[in-house]
Simulated scan of single mutants.
Amino acid sequence: MIDKHDLHKLCGGRPVAIVGAGLVGAGWAIVFARAGLHVKMFDANPEITRKAVPLIDTQLQGLHRHGLIDEAPAAVLARISAVDTLAQAVDGVAYVQESVLERVDVKRQLMVDLDALIAPDTIVGSSTSGIPGSAFALGLSISPRVLIAHPVNPPYLVPVVELVPSPETATRTVDVADALMRAVGQAVVHVRKEVEGFVLNRLQAVLLREAWALVQEGVASCEDVDKTVRDGLGWRWSFMGPFETIDLNAPGGVADYAVRLGPLYQRIADSRGHDTPWDADLIGHVEAQRREHLSHDDLEARRAWRDERLMEFAAARRTRDPRN
């Protein structure tokens, strides 16, 4: 639940900045604006910013339709301002959410630029999907105030955010970022050691590696793999995690499950090397199967369909989950 009192205390009435206005950055703009914060949004490519504004408007309309925002969409959108320069974006802000290209050199240059621009108490969160902060955010005066704040896309519908400090991140930075994310309605995961991919993408990577291997070996089609998750594993995973799942799946709980099925999982793990990348033939094979179910021309419409389903799910969780 969004706590506007905490937000006021944390930000002191100051806005936040979004640097990088692609899908992730635009999503973050919605997260902060719907919570009541003013947002300044900047992208080095003005065309990306231009496209972000109508996208945000469309998503706000959907959120309002599903009862996920109480205000009129126009009122939330009015709190988001597109600006022309990085200096304008970060001037006077309490927090910066970086969502630029997933490249170390680009992120490093941005950190150097921010080092010269932001206030001495401004915190910077990076949306990077798997690059540790130590790869681009060390050795600067702002380094103690930089950490990873990795979301799932779109962050205004899937609330989890991973907070990952670098070796130079101050404890207070983590504490403030935690409080801010909770106050804007996100579910915080603390990653306590730097590791490539953090937690979410490391878990996803294991599932994806096996999914591709099953298709490559002719064990199952792409559609049947998707069906196994969509109509099987995903039903439970939509409201509980893997440890709670197995804790409930054996009479004696998680330890009983480990004794019963641990050897099977070890044999499965031992049967896999995963020592080669997905090659061109395999990628082409998977691409062909996916295009049988969804043409390139329909990708954008299917993304909109996905977001509508996520909105329905978010609305249901709001009314049924006592933790929300």
Rank of each mutant, 00 (worst) to 15 (best):
D3S: 05
K4D: 00
C11L: 14
L23P: 00
G25V: 09
G25E: 09
A26D: 03
A29G: 06
I30D: 04
F32E: 09
R34D: 07
G36Q: 04
V39A: 07
K40N: 12
D43S: 05
A44G: 14
R50H: 09
V53E: 10
L55D: 06
I56D: 09
Q61R: 08
G62K: 13
L63C: 02
E71Q: 08
A74D: 15
V76Q: 06
I80F: 03
S81G: 05
A82V: 08
L86E: 10
V90H: 05
Y95C: 01
Y95L: 10
V104F: 01
D115H: 03
L117Q: 07
V124D: 10
G125A: 13
S126L: 10
S127D: 13
T128K: 15
S143F: 01
V152F: 10
V160S: 13
V161E: 06
E162G: 12
P167L: 09
R172P: 00
R172D: 06
T173M: 04
V174L: 15
V176N: 02
D178F: 05
L180Q: 14
M181T: 00
G185W: 06
L200G: 07
N201E: 11
A205W: 14
A205F: 12
R209M: 03
E217S: 08
A220V: 01
R236D: 11
S238M: 03
F243E: 14
I246M: 09
P251Q: 13
A258S: 12
P263S: 06
D281K: 10
E300N: 10
R302E: 14
L310R: 02
P322D: 03
